[in-house]
Simulated assay, not measured.
Amino acid sequence: MQWKFVLDRPEGVDESVTGKFFVMHPSGEQLGKITELAEQGKVRAVVDSVFKLDEFEKAFERLGSGRTRGKVVLRLDDEE
């Protein structure tokens, strides 16, 4: 991981909150371990909501609401 810079804290945000922008370098070994943990049910992704691709504006509204608990997903296929 390579740190780029510390982000400015928006007005009204508590001083205990910090934001950092960084770039990750993928590791095949680490991704393999994460895959094993997911397959064993020891870790899982938390999904807040799923939207069809043509509903991207609703997805971004949800993301911008600050009320999400988990990932907001855009579905690229028509499966439910």
Rank of each mutant, 00 (worst) to 15 (best):
I34R: 01
R67E: 15
V13C: 12
Q30G: 02
G19W: 00
R62Q: 15
D8F: 00
R67H: 15
E29Y: 06
D8V: 08
L37G: 03
A59E: 04
R9Q: 05
Q40G: 01
W3P: 02
V6A: 11
E57H: 08
D54G: 04
E80F: 00
D77F: 02
L76V: 15
M24N: 14
D8I: 04
G41V: 03
V50L: 00
T18G: 09
R75D: 06
V73E: 05
A59T: 05
T18W: 07
W3C: 00
K71T: 07
M1T: 10
R75I: 06
T18P: 00
F22N: 13
E15Y: 08
L31T: 10
V43M: 11
K33F: 00
E57T: 13
W3L: 01
K33P: 00
K42Y: 07
G32M: 02
D77M: 04
L31S: 14
M1S: 10
A45N: 11
T35C: 11
K4M: 09
F60N: 09
H25V: 12
E57K: 12
G28L: 02
K4I: 07
T68Y: 02
G64E: 12
P26H: 06
F5S: 13
Q2I: 14
G66W: 00
G64H: 13
L76F: 14
D77T: 13
L7A: 12
G41C: 08
L37V: 11
R67D: 12
L74K: 06
K20N: 13
T68S: 07
G19N: 05
D48K: 04
A59H: 04
E29C: 00
